[in-house]
Each structure stands twice: as structure tokens, then as C-alpha cells.
Design a protein around this nucleic acid. Sequence first.
DNA 1: CACCACGTTATCATATATGATAACCGATTA
DNA 2: TAATCGGTTATCATATATGATAACGTGGTG
Lengths: 75, 75
Amino acid sequence: MEINQLQIKIGERIRVLRESKGITQQNLAAICNFEKANLSRLEAGRTNPTISTLYKISQALEVSISDLLDVESYN
Amino acid sequence: MEINQLQIKIGERIRVLRESKGITQQNLAAICNFEKANLSRLEAGRTNPTISTLYKISQALEVSISDLLDVESYN
DNA sequence: CACCACGTTATCATATATGATAACCGATTA
DNA sequence: TAATCGGTTATCATATATGATAACGTGGTG
């Protein structure tokens, strides 16, 4: 799998989890101390996030980091 | 959990998985197209890796990225 | 002793993630 | 119409991950 595809899948996964909690990008961004624009960029898969970024999001969404990586290579 | 602690745990986990495959840092680094010095830095938890870095390692170790994140927040 | 093999640490350059701000779009609503 | 809301995109600055190289330590082995 291309790294680009992975980024996109992670972004999509974050979006799904965020929406399932019924919160806006603005909400989630605020909890994580991100700017909403930056979260939008992340959900669009336009960056290669660090583990700390994913960690903050996982905490805010009350899931594990692994839950953000639903898409996997060796399952 | 501190982000620093997370980095250290991930580094330790990578080391354990690498050693369980019986390969050296040099080997793994070569497969991933890293310099051995950079892999050493990563295993020491002295960086905040991107998902693409973790992905390359997971592929080389034939595990999922989640397997590198054994330590979790919301389990 | 010299010589490797494995790993560590430091350093510098470069690429890029992230912070921050502004402008914009579409949909909704008053 | 104007205003708000959720989201997007572009842009620039700054922090930092990564690439790359060199020097070093330690343990084993000839």
C-alpha cells in the first residue's frame, strides 16, 4: 500500500469516528489544541502525521491509536 | 501518558520485534532504507515518528502498525 | 595486539509536519 | 439580503523528523 493511501485512510477513519461522536472539526480541533484548518488537512490525508498527533486525536475521541489505523498491512 | 513515554515504548517494541526476528539494526535499516544511526535513534525513543516511518518498519517486520503500538491509551 | 560487528551519539542539511492566520465555499437561517 | 456554521484551501513561519556522515564504545575473535 502506498503511504499516500494510508494517510487518506487514516484521515477518513478519523472523520468517521469524529462524526460518530457528533462533534465538529472545530470541536475536535479545540480539544486537541489544533487549528480547525489543520484538522481539515489531516482528515483530507494531506499530511503524514506523527504518532503524537494521532495520540492526541485518539485521546480526544476516546479510542486507541490502533483504532485510527483500521487499515492494516499485515492483519 | 506522556508523548515521550509513548515514543520510548514504541522504540522498545520495535527493538523486541526486530530481535525476535534475529536481525540487526543494520539489517532492518537497510530493508527500510534508513541509516542504522537513524534506526538507533528511533529505537531509543528520541524522535516522534511519522506514520510512514512506522509503516515501513511494520512492513519490514511483517507485522501491523498496531503491533508496534502495543501500548495503548484506551484499550 | 589488530580487526570486526553491532550499536550509540553527535552533527549538519533538508524535507516536511505543525502552528497560525486569512479568505473562501455551500448550506442554512433570520 | 445578510449572517452564521461547518468545512476547505492557501500561505507563511517555525519546529522537528529524517537523511547522511563521522566518530566512538564494547564485546568478540583472529
